[in-house]
């Protein structure tokens, strides 16, 4: 509660431009959270559409399995990043 009050008093002291910047950072958090599952959706649909339809690497299952397995935690990380942005973890520029 005290923390929230401090944060509120700090944000109320900030210039309009500063407040706008903070709002944009928080709002963009939703975008990062949405992008993450969209990436995984495109990877899975890319795998379904391409596996077995030719002889290139994109037509083999192994690369897709590796890529989707490594990208799933990365997309999870992007969602957490978005969540942190919404929660104001990046309000102070790093």
């Amino acid at each position: 509660m005290i923390k929230e009050n401090i944060a509120f008093s700090q944000s109320s002291k900030a210039s309009p431009l500063g407040r706008f910047g903070r709002a944009v950072k928080k709002l963009m958090g939703f975008v990062w959270m949405i992008i993450a599952p969209v990436i995984i959706f495109f990877l899975i649909s890319g795998a379904i559409n391409n596996i077995g339809h030719g002889t290139k690497d994109i037509n083999k299952p192994i690369p897709w399995i590796i890529i989707i397995s490594i990208f799933t935690p990365i997309a999870g990380g992007l969602m957490i990043f978005g969540w942190y942005a919404i929660k104001g973890e990046y309000e102070k520029k790093i």
């Binding site: 990380g77 957490i80 990043f81 790093i94």
Partner: peptide, 13 residues
């Protein structure tokens, strides 16, 4: 730890 993990995410993205 959140304090460090958020930096890892920021460095990456």
């Amino acid at each position: 730890k959140k304090e460090n993990f958020k930096m890892v995410l920021l460095a990456l993205f």
